[in-house]
């Protein structure tokens, strides 16, 4: 007896009027969605492996956009393309555009270093430098020529506050960052990324190496940061994506299967593959 529906079509037969009525029924306030990242037919090859195929995605300002998908689907690769960290691998080749604020990030006049001050990154395993907490957070501004102690002091304090860790470390700024717990280290890394005052923060599975309480702290932090920054987060934790994000993109074998509001993806996705993935029926 079939209790799980058979969906053969990719788009289910829903008329748009119904959707709009539902939206109006929820009395949504008018949110102006301004795109901050837009990819146009972006393709990427690792040697002969066509790792990303015709990616067309838009991410909006002050939103948390989640990227989910099984291992090897290209989600990390994609996010690392947004700040061109993917170029650290020598055999990489790309085609298509990635527009950051309507500027193609691959254009010559846009240096990779400049891009990375505006598009920061937090990695899966916390990776603070073996330096003091202060020097970790001040590293970004310092490396871009900011030297005055007063300015740096202020930047460090603001970043640590924004990362919700100031109170925990304000009395030991000159202690080695590696002496902190995993969850604290990750928040230091977030503070470090915030210090260059970026627009966008990319997070590649930011909590997968953390314990549940630290995970919750980081997720709460993401909600706070949303007000001033735009966040793109890769996660293999479905519940995290559902809890935290505004929109979700489902990647599979290098292409985007579905990209929609998180509510839609997790409550009533259009594509059967998305449904199967989010309900854990395949991975």
């Amino acid at each position: 007896m079939a209790n799980i529906k058979e969906k053969n079509t990719i788009t289910k037969p829903v008329d748009n009027t119904t959707l709009e009525e539902t939206t109006q029924g929820e009395k949504k306030t008018e949110i102006i969605r301004e795109p901050i990242f837009k990819t146009n037919n972006f393709n990427l090859w690792y040697g002969d492996n066509h790792a990303l195929q015709d990616i067309n995605l838009t991410f909006n300002k002050n939103e948390i956009s989640a990227i989910i998908g099984p291992s090897g689907c290209g989600k990390s690769t994609f996010v690392k393309s947004l700040n061109r960290m993917v170029e650290l691998v020598p055999v990489v080749r790309t085609e298509g555009e990635i527009l950051y604020r309507d500027q193609d990030i691959f254009e010559k006049k846009f240096t990779v270093e400049e891009l990375r001050t505006k598009v920061g990154m937090v990695f899966q395993k916390p990776n603070p430098f073996p330096k003091s907490i202060y020097d970790n957070v001040a590293y970004g501004p310092r490396v871009h020529g900011i030297r005055k102690k007063k300015v740096l002091d202020e930047v460090v304090e603001k970043s640590l506050c924004d990362a919700a860790i100031w109170d925990e470390v304000k009395d030991r700024l000159h202690e080695n960052a590696l002496g902190l717990s995993g969850g604290q280290q990750q928040r230091i890394c977030i503070a470090r990324a915030l210090a260059t005052e970026p627009d966008v923060i990319l997070m590649d599975e930011p909590t997968s190496a953390l314990d549940p309480i630290s995970t919750t702290k980081v997720e709460d932090l993401m909600q706070q940061l949303k007000k001033d920054y735009s966040i793109v987060v890769v996660t293999h934790n479905m519940q995290q994506a559902a809890r935290v994000s505004d929109t979700t993109a489902f990647f599979y074998q290098g292409y985007v299967v579905e990209h929609d509001e998180t509510k839609v993806i997790f409550e009533n996705p259009r594509d059967q593959r998305t449904e199967d993935y989010v309900s854990g029926r395949f991975g």
Binding site: L88, F123, V143, T196
Partner: peptide, 26 residues
């Protein structure tokens, strides 16, 4: 570890800066 270098590059440092400001001190 390479993750340390990536952290530096991710902040917009060049390879040279990463080598002298992060790797050597480490």
């Amino acid at each position: 570890p390479n993750s340390t270098r990536e952290g530096s590059l991710g902040l917009g440092a060049t390879k040279l800066e990463t080598t002298f400001k992060v790797v050597l001190p480490a």
